[in-house]
Every structure is written in C-alpha cells, then in structure tokens.
Simulated assay, not measured.
Amino acid sequence: MGTVTLGVSIAVPEPYGSLLQERRAGFGDPAAHGIPTHVTLLPPTSVEEARLPAVRAHLAEVAAACRAFPMRLSGTGTFRPLSPVVFVQVVEGAAACSWLQKRVRDASGPLERELLFPYHPHVTVAHGIAEEAMDVAYEELADFEASWTVGSFALYEQGADGVWRKLSEYEFGAGRPAPSVPAQGSPVDEPATSRG
C-alpha cells in the first residue's frame, strides 16, 4: 500500500485563517496556499497507509479525553537563527496544545515520533523566505490579535502536489458537540481521496 504523510493540527478559524494565509502569501512564501493556517500538534509524519484506521481510532480517543479551551494569538515571534520561521504567538491555550500534542505522539499509539525541536505552539506566517521578507512579516503582524474557543483538531494528508488536505475532524469530549469553527475557505479542505 505504501506510506502517506500526515499531520495533526488545530485550525485557525475565519476570518483569521484566510487573513493570515493571504498575508503569508503576500510576504512571498510559496507554500502559503497549500497549508491551512494552523497550530501544529503533529508535524509532517510518514505513516504506513494500512495504519490509517488505527491512526483515526487513536485520534478519536485523544479528542474524547479533551475539553474545549480558549485560544488567543497575539503578536509575533521568530525561531531565527535556528530555523527560518516567523510566527504569530500563542499567548493563551499553549498548555492545552502541549498536553494534546503529547497524547497524539504517545508511545502507545500509532503516531509515536521524536521532535527535532522542543514543542512550541505557534502559527507560522513566513518560512524559508528572504530575511528581509521575514523581517517585514515580523513587523507587520506585530499587532495581530485573535481569540476563539478550540473544540476540535483535524487530521491532514499532504498530497504529491505539496498541498495539505483535511481527512477528518475530531471534536472534543465523548460525544459532546464541539463549538463550531468555520472551515477555512480553501481547496485544501477537500478530501484527498475517498479515504476522507
């Protein structure tokens, strides 16, 4: 069957998601329109396609054990010089994101993996572009603010075209409805295959 590249993330809702995606494109980041605006819980991870049912079951269990929590973004930060990234900071909800990502990557589940860097929840707005353009992103979004209630996370697959497409959404709580987060208006939300 082969492997698939998966990621797990919390979507940044509208109108903030599209706004940050457009700003990212405007800074010259060629990956902007292939990546929905998000807070990563599991970075790109190669998984045997046959393990997808186990991945879905695991993520459903993780989501069922979580409750909705407030998320607030404010201002910018950077990982430079270690990594060429400018991001919007998560100033509320970081502890809940850290708790979630640990459970997503738990050694007892199908998505166990080590991270290259210590986990730091954030929303990337520029990656791997010219230093001057990253400086612009850092300065122009310094006053950015957004807040919402997080009630779910999603599983994404990266296609051969480099675009990330949502496969499934996992609402928090055992059977309790999650607060609705409007989907980001983009083709990246279309299922990659009939697996979705």
Results as ranks from 00 to 15, higher is better:
residue 42 L to C: 07
residue 43 P to C: 02
residue 43 P to N: 06
residue 43 P to H: 07
residue 44 P to S: 07
residue 44 P to N: 01
residue 45 T to R: 08
residue 45 T to W: 07
residue 45 T to Y: 08
residue 46 S to K: 15
residue 46 S to A: 04
residue 47 V to C: 06
residue 47 V to L: 07
residue 48 E to G: 08
residue 49 E to A: 12
residue 50 A to W: 13
residue 50 A to S: 14
residue 51 R to E: 15
residue 52 L to H: 04
residue 52 L to S: 01
residue 53 P to F: 08
residue 54 A to S: 15
residue 54 A to P: 15
residue 54 A to R: 14
residue 55 V to E: 02
residue 56 R to G: 12
residue 56 R to F: 11
residue 58 H to P: 13
residue 58 H to L: 11
residue 59 L to P: 12
residue 59 L to S: 00
residue 59 L to W: 07
residue 60 A to P: 12
residue 61 E to C: 12
residue 61 E to L: 15
residue 62 V to D: 03
residue 63 A to S: 02
residue 63 A to R: 09
residue 66 C to S: 11
residue 66 C to W: 00
residue 67 R to H: 05
residue 67 R to N: 05
residue 67 R to Q: 09
residue 67 R to V: 06
residue 67 R to E: 07
residue 68 A to P: 14
residue 68 A to F: 10
residue 68 A to I: 04
residue 69 F to D: 08
residue 70 P to L: 07
residue 71 M to I: 11
residue 72 R to D: 04
residue 73 L to A: 08
residue 75 G to A: 11
residue 76 T to Q: 02
residue 78 T to R: 13
residue 78 T to C: 03
residue 78 T to K: 02
residue 79 F to K: 12
residue 79 F to H: 08
residue 80 R to Q: 13
residue 80 R to I: 06
residue 80 R to D: 12
residue 81 P to R: 00
residue 81 P to C: 00
residue 82 L to D: 15
residue 82 L to W: 14
residue 83 S to Y: 15
residue 83 S to A: 15
residue 83 S to T: 14
residue 83 S to D: 13
residue 85 V to S: 01
residue 85 V to D: 01
residue 85 V to F: 05
residue 86 V to H: 10
residue 87 F to R: 09
residue 87 F to Q: 04
residue 88 V to S: 00
residue 88 V to W: 01
residue 88 V to I: 01
residue 89 Q to H: 13
residue 89 Q to W: 11
residue 92 E to L: 12
residue 93 G to E: 07
residue 93 G to V: 06
residue 94 A to Y: 02
residue 94 A to I: 05
residue 95 A to Q: 12
residue 95 A to R: 13
residue 95 A to S: 11
residue 96 A to H: 03
residue 96 A to I: 07
residue 97 C to W: 02
residue 97 C to T: 13
residue 97 C to G: 05
residue 97 C to L: 05
residue 99 W to C: 09
residue 99 W to G: 09
residue 100 L to E: 06
residue 101 Q to C: 01
residue 102 K to A: 13
residue 102 K to G: 13
residue 103 R to G: 09
residue 103 R to C: 02
residue 107 A to I: 10
residue 107 A to L: 10
residue 107 A to P: 12
residue 107 A to E: 04
